[in-house]
Design a binder for these strands. Structure first.
Lengths: 201, 201
DNA sequence: ACCTGAACACCGTTCAAGT
DNA sequence: ACCTGAACACCGTTCAAGT
């Protein structure tokens, strides 16, 4: 006499994600996740290997959401600078909407699956085309390694309660994005520090 | 018949810090901290309110170390660009030497005491003088809000295992620092986006 | 086929008892 | 004065038993 499932993987993940935002990673217990989907803790082990597997699944979910938001932003404009600005805004908005989740996917100790790595690469990748048209194909990766760290650093400092010395955080963010894009434009061609070799000579 | 102390606060903190780097924050148990200093877990509660208090004490210790390293770097050169470069290198070196500790002090969920806030402000403050001579007193804070997020973002992405797309991470870091300093120099005076008001007109 | 209570080894924390 | 074992409420996880 087979028992019908009381829940699904997807329901567990989304319940766990909501719980994560409410109680933080260390507060996310198997008991609470289970009771949020109307089941007992041991039942979760039929679907996920352990607590870490649930966290990993949440991460994948978050990476996909972030990649989606960045993709939409990228498609919002053909003009590279405007496209980059839109992505920057979308990135910050995502982090502010999912602060605990954002911290989770950026965590040092986070385990990642191959799927997670792919979703992560996709998210990072959306900045490359506009950067390429801004600084040239061969400097796009180097440029991404300036802009992306700034975005991550800014929002994670903001979420951690930084920027308390006054002044608008919104304006500071825009200023940072503008300054970096300007700096990158200037570095175009001039710097070969981070290019493997300079062919055009 | 008074029992002599078997350990000290300082010994506990430094043992806990070593343990943190080895096993990570979630692996740092009161049992292990206690046994590392030759005592039983309940004894720790005579010195620290709870586990969170030990983590907070570790954070203060780390902020002081970071502030010390940045201060030394700041004093290494009078030339603002060279001073900023030295601080950037010191910042990255600190994070790489204390990866788990670095993650701890930057954590969203971290509690902070007033002492911690002061040590944190001191650490951030060392970049202001060279930035002031680079972009002017009134834009120094805005400039710090571009450079510091980049530094934090870069090292935390590096520690999290980012930058796997090839190319030298070292060179990428230098390129970022250079690009941002250049961008900030150019923005001097031109941008009033993030200044409260423009007096010089 | 799926869910469950009971059990195990752990954890942070409290507290009365020891010296 | 400081340290300790015992106890409590929790936690993740396993597993035999239920339907």
């Amino acid at each position: 006499m087979p028992s019908p499932p009381k829940t699904t993987d997807a329901e567990i993940i989304s319940a766990a994600r909501r719980l994560l935002e409410r109680v933080g990673e260390s507060g996310l217990s198997m008991n609470e996740v289970a009771s949020a989907v109307g089941v007992r803790a041991p039942s979760l082990y039929g679907r996920f290997a352990d607590r870490a597997a649930i966290l990993t699944a949440i991460q994948l979910d978050l990476w996909r959401d972030l990649a989606g938001a960045l993709g939409r932003a990228a498609r919002s404009s053909d003009e590279p600078v405007e496209g980059l600005r839109a992505q920057a805004r979308a990135y910050r908005a995502f982090a502010k909407a999912n602060p605990r989740g954002y911290a989770l996917i950026m965590n040092v100790d986070a385990e990642t699956t191959d799927e997670g790595k792919r979703a992560r690469a996709a998210a990072v990748g959306f900045a490359l085309p506009p950067l390429a048209s801004l600084v040239g194909e061969e400097h796009a990766l180097a440029a991404a390694r300036v802009l992306t760290p700034f975005l991550h650093g800014f929002v994670s400092m903001e979420l951690a309660g930084g920027f308390r010395l006054g002044g608008g955080v919104e304006a500071a963010f825009d200023f940072g994005v503008t300054t970096i894009i300007d700096g990158l434009r200037r570095a175009r061609g001039a710097s070969r520090t981070n290019a493997k070799r300079s062919r055009s000579r």
